[in-house]
Design a binder for these strands. Structure first.
Length: 515
DNA sequence: ATAGGGTTAG
């Protein structure tokens, strides 16, 4: 019997060359061969057709997933459909897409269940890695570990990756570095980073942003200075690091160096990163500078986040007029809830309660529904502007119309509002009515501040007791209380409190004005 | 395909 280890084509050619007789009898073997060939061909054709059909189906399935990446039902339907038709094994792309959709869903763990499901079906195979897993699969799974905050799962995945031979893949390793460093395991991350045979700018950037996240600023800075090719993300990351650590001068200096020395173009996120440093140093000129740059680059027109941040920065630099003017230039369609909330917050911090309320009403007229932050801003505006009745009105509106459950900050605003107005009994009543699960010391500090201002000794003592029950070792409260006592001539009590304060090593930080 | 900030009581 003729046997060939080669493909059907070779078989076919050999047969023709060997059997040249014209006697039909001699063709019996040939015909049986050709029959088999034909059968084989047919089978191949069928398989091809099936695969083609499956691909056709998948062509339909892929856009379905792409259009509804967060729809868990659709993802699960595609998943089970593929398991029953067995075609999951033919398409890595589709498999990866399902993984991606699962990781975006509310149950990212399902991505790992799917991975496990396929991996277990493959345990009897000789291959180490199932052929339908590729670098995309692994980087996607590592990313899921990050969003789940599961470093142990990530470590296990790392072992699998090394075993199946993706141990030197740049994208997979970059994902691993990101996983370790952003979850707080900078030593493990650095080890992967150091051992990588090849790195790209993203690899360096994930190191920098991850280290910055955990406050390892000096290490991040050394990598930043060492890296061969910095881009806008690298600059944004390191600037963000300095802003986070309250080193605003250095953040601003880096921004200047980025633009002036390295001719690097800041992007939208860079603007968002530098603006907190601008308002915390309080120089309006810098805000105007960045505003101009954003205008020139078109960021203010395209990215509403930049516009919103500029409103906030102008207001926090003390320029509520500029903030308001800038806000008015944004078209009504582009203004979103954050834009409205930002300008209301700005008016609130400048004590312009009337303007804040006006804008709240304007916002409602254009059909924006306030959320808990918007209500907080307007309540804050009422407390700063001395508009007690309006404040109550908004509080009830929030609960009844807005269906917003008040949180501790909303109660804080009410206490502050009543306290400033001298309605201390009502303020204390609210403070006592705050649900015990959410209450905190800030509420009582606010009340204590009001007692200090209005010279109410008894209530001040009650508030101080509450604060002491909640937290120990903060100096400001003792100072306020001893001031109250001194104010009414109880010098002995004031002295005793001061001594107790010294005994507890409580310190009051001296105040410092920017202006 | 792997990287990144809009608004939040005192």
């Amino acid at each position: 019997m003729f046997r060939s280890r080669r493909g059907p084509l070779f078989l076919y050619i050999t047969n023709i060359n060997t059997y040249t007789s014209t006697n039909p009898k001699h063709f019996s073997f040939v015909s049986s061969q050709t029959q088999r060939q034909q059968k084989h061909k047919q089978k191949q054709k069928q398989q091809k057709k099936q695969k083609h059909l499956q691909q056709k189906k998948q062509e339909h399935l892929l856009p379905l997933l792409h259009k509804n990446p967060t729809n868990l039902t659709i993802t699960q339907q595609v998943h089970s459909h593929l398991l029953t038709t067995d075609s999951l094994y033919h398409s890595t792309l589709l498999f990866n897409t399902i993984l991606h959709c699962y990781s975006l869903s509310d149950y990212p763990k399902k991505a790992f269940f799917l991975h496990k499901q396929l991996q277990q079906n493959y345990t009897h195979s000789e291959c180490l890695s199932p052929p339908y897993f590729d670098s995309f699969t692994y980087s996607s799974l590592i990313k899921t570990c990050v969003s789940l905050g599961y470093p142990n799962l990530g470590r296990q995945l790392h072992a699998v990756i090394t075993k199946v031979g993706f141990g030197s893949h740049v994208y997979v390793n970059t994902a691993l570095v990101n996983m370790y460093v952003s979850l707080g395991f900078s030593v493990a991350g650095t080890k992967v980073f150091d051992e990588m045979p090849e790195r790209n700018s993203v690899t360096w950037n994930v190191m920098i942003t991850g280290l910055v996240k955990w406050g390892e600023l000096e290490f991040a800075r050394s990598l930043f200075e060492k890296m061969p090719c910095r881009n806008a993300v690298s600059w944004t990351g390191i600037i963000d690091g300095y802003t986070r650590m309250n080193r605003f001068g250095e953040a601003l200096a880096l921004f200047r160096r980025m633009v002036v020395c390295d001719f690097m173009q800041p992007c939208e996120v860079t603007i968002l990163a530098i603006l907190p440093a601008v308002w915390q140093t309080g120089d309006v000129k810098n805000c105007q500078l960045i505003h101009g740059y954003g205008e020139k680059k078109g960021f203010n027109a395209t990215d509403i986040r930049v516009s919103n941040c500029l409103i906030d920065t102008y207001a926090k630099c003390g320029c509520i007029r500029s903030a308001s003017r800038f806000f008015e230039k944004i078209s009504i369609e582009r203004r979103n809830l954050v834009s409205w909330t930002s300008i209301i917050t700005g008016f609130a911090m400048h004590g312009m309660g009337k303007e804040a309320i006006e804008n709240f009403e304007r916002m409602e007229r254009v059909g924006r529904k306030p959320n808990r932050v918007t209500y907080l801003s307007v309540l804050n505006a009422c407390s700063h502007g001395g508009l007690v009745e309006e404040g109550f009105k908004f509080f009830y509106k929030m609960v009844k119309e807005g269906q917003v459950l008040p949180d501790i900050k909303h109660y804080g605003c009410l206490v502050d509002m009543l306290g400033r107005a001298g309605r201390l009994e009502e303020a204390e009543k609210i403070a006592l009515e705050v649900p015990s699960e959410i209450t905190n010391d800030v509420i009582w500090r606010t009340l204590l501040g009001a007692c200090s201002f209005h010279g109410n000794v008894e209530m001040g003592e009650r508030a101080t007791r509450k604060i002491l029950e909640m937290e120990r070792g903060y100096g400001g409260d003792y100072v306020l209380m001893s001031n109250i006592l001194t104010g009414v001539g109880r010098f002995g009590d004031a002295e005793r409190l001061r001594k107790e304060m010294d005994g507890r090593n409580a310190l009051k930080k001296p105040g410092c004005s920017l202006i």
